[in-house]
Design a protein around this nucleic acid. Structure first.
Lengths: 166, 166
DNA sequence: TTCATCGGTCGCATGATGCGACTTGCGCGT
DNA sequence: ACGCGCAAGTCGCATCATGCGACCGATGAA
């Protein structure tokens, strides 16, 4: 998996016979997973993303373009006259949800927040919360990756989330 | 969560109210997750790790020490006279298993290997394979994080794994 | 005695990131 | 018409992490 465009990465993950290596080649860059999570949470525009992450504009631009290149994000124009764009997760991007959730749960366990989990996982079809086994606490279903979405939990301030999840 | 020792990271993940950010602060460095995975697979010594990853010695040293500092790895001396060491996962490290698995499955899905999955997840107590919901295909149990271990699957060559998993 | 191995350290070059200024296109208030 | 401000970038420079490759110290084998 060598990506020629943008001349990014090219980590020697390449010679690794390992799906984790291949995944990290795509989303292992600093900021990538956080960008994906924030976009999943509804922070779909450039300036809010930049502000929330404290990332520089140039790096954010680079990361967004790379993620679009990889098919994880898509760019949508929401305004013609002043050309303005939004970024959204593709299905491939949404399917990173479970990986993000596991990382989150690990963080919650070893580096807990005082106010409770800042982000929670919700079953898209019935709205129930998911446990660590991806089982919906409401309908009991074992939830597929693309039926999960992330939502602000008790540990999060509302102003971080100007928009509802896509 | 600011780590003073080793003067590593200090990413501005700090001001993030987010468990994913806190997790990535600890394991988000380049190489970290791959090192953890390889050690979980039984590559416990310096030289095999270095060779398998194609990482430089200095960076490997830095990463290993950081991961020990974080309580994810522990260093064990297995030889006195020429002082030689092995690295092993702590419980905290083993609990990253589910996150690694989700990343792996995502990679398998979008960047598949021709020979099948190179690493598979096994239920430590009964030896059954796990599916994507962390449910053991053999005993049907919904498996806890620290009851999972990783194993070489069909897509992996044997010589990558000189030792059996801990 | 010399060689090889393991587990490192060190110095230099390169590439990614952070910092902050500048830009372009447009709407808005006066 | 003028200037202000915002969104979404671009650009240049400084710093820091990483890659590359040489070297080292302890030991055991030939």
């Amino acid at each position: 998996m060598r990506v020629t465009i943008l001349a990014v990465l090219d980590r020697d993950y390449d010679n690794q016979v390992c799906s984790i290596a291949r995944s990290l080649e795509v989303v292992g860059e600093r900021w990538s997973l956080l960008i994906i999570r924030n976009i999943g949470l509804g922070l779909n525009r450039f300036e809010p993303l930049r502000e929330n992450l404290g990332i520089t504009r140039s790096v954010l631009t680079t990361r967004l373009n790379a993620l679009i290149e990889y098919g994880i994000l898509e760019k949508r124009q929401y305004s013609e006259k002043p050309p303005r764009y939004e970024y959204h997760l593709t299905e491939k991007g949404r399917n990173l949800g479970p990986a993000l959730l596991q990382l989150m749960w690990w963080g919650d366990r070893y580096y807990p927040e005082q106010n409770g989990a800042p982000t929670i996982a919700v079953h898209r079809t019935c709205g129930g919360k998911l446990d660590h086994h991806m089982i919906c606490q409401q309908c009991g279903e074992s939830v597929e990756a693309d039926r999960v979405y992330l939502k602000a939990g008790p540990g999060r301030k509302v102003e971080d989330l100007p928009k509802v999840p896509a």
